[in-house]
């Protein structure tokens, strides 16, 4: 038996909004620790991972691990039927269930909606992500700043370079119409309202596809801050964490490399 209830549908709606433009379908792996997912986009440029830890749920029961193959567009359609303040309960049989049940209940518990989502058999490749990556540079910024930077730059072109030196990050773009750049310095004061922090072990300069950096802005509502981790020649790791360590959405984006 798998049963998980979220107090408000907003949490799962935001998480799905953050991943559904990158992934068509994925296995939602349910275990005693929580709900997680890992999937690549079709061109294999980006790996998206998501975790909703058991503590994110008001009720969480997973008697034995199960994997639910879900079409992201279908689950999003069903969740559109939940108001943002409605609770969401997901129920599935852990013995080869062919559908999962979604129950939406309003705050006054006098309106209850039931939906069944057909599950799929998905044969997906699972990649092993190193847990203890020692990144050369880590930058944390308000997620609203992230959205502004990459929505602006990706309009100019798709080749975006991130260069991080001591206390400064430079984001630049080259496109058909011209080019542009933006420098972001670490904020001086620790009590600054919207702090930018930059930790550099070694300066790093790498180039990434702007289309993806812009797509990741869909995760901005999840978190007030975003962390970007870079190591030369390795994928860029971008993390949006849910409040109270309830979970996260992480993207790993393959760099553009010189031929």
């Amino acid at each position: 038996m798998f049963e998980a209830k979220l107090t408000e549908s907003t949490t799962i709606k935001r998480v799905l909004d953050a991943i559904k433009d990158l992934i068509q379908q994925a296995n939602f792996d349910c275990s005693a620790d929580g709900l997680s997912l890992q999937a690549m986009d079709t061109p294999h440029v980006c790996l998206t991972t998501m975790t909703l830890r058991s503590q994110a749920f008001e009720v969480y029961r997973c008697d034995r691990p199960l994997s639910m193959g879900i079409n992201l567009s279908s689950i999003s359609k069903i969740l559109k039927c939940a108001a943002s303040k409605d609770s969401v309960k997901i129920v599935a049989d852990d013995e080869g269930a062919d559908c999962a049940e979604f129950i939406f209940e309003n705050e006054s518990a006098d309106r209850i909606a039931h939906f069944e989502l057909k599950l799929m058999d998905i044969d997906s490749e699972h990649l092993s992500i190193p847990e203890d990556s020692d990144y050369q540079a880590i930058i944390s910024m308000p997620s609203a700043e992230y959205r502004r930077i990459f929505s602006d730059l990706s309009i100019i072109g798709d080749t975006i370079t991130i260069e991080i030196n001591k206390n400064t990050a430079c984001f630049s773009v080259e496109g058909d119409i011209g080019n542009g750049s933006l420098n972001l310095a670490q904020t001086d004061s620790a009590d600054e309202k919207n702090p930018v922090t930059i930790n550099v072990k070694e300066p790093v300069k790498m180039t990434f596809p702007g289309k993806y950096l812009n797509t990741f802005t869909k995760a901005v509502p999840i978190s007030e801050f975003v962390t970007l981790c870079l190591t030369d020649g390795n994928p860029l790791a971008i993390e949006f964490s849910l409040p109270d360590e309830a979970g996260f959405v992480r993207y790993f984006l393959a760099p553009k490399i010189d031929q």
Binding site: H44, C46, L47, E125, I129, L253, K256
Partner: peptide, 12 residues
């Protein structure tokens, strides 16, 4: 040139 994410992480 755009690299592929599969060239960085091993399949399990």
């Amino acid at each position: 040139m755009q690299s592929s994410i599969t060239s960085f992480f091993k399949k399990t």
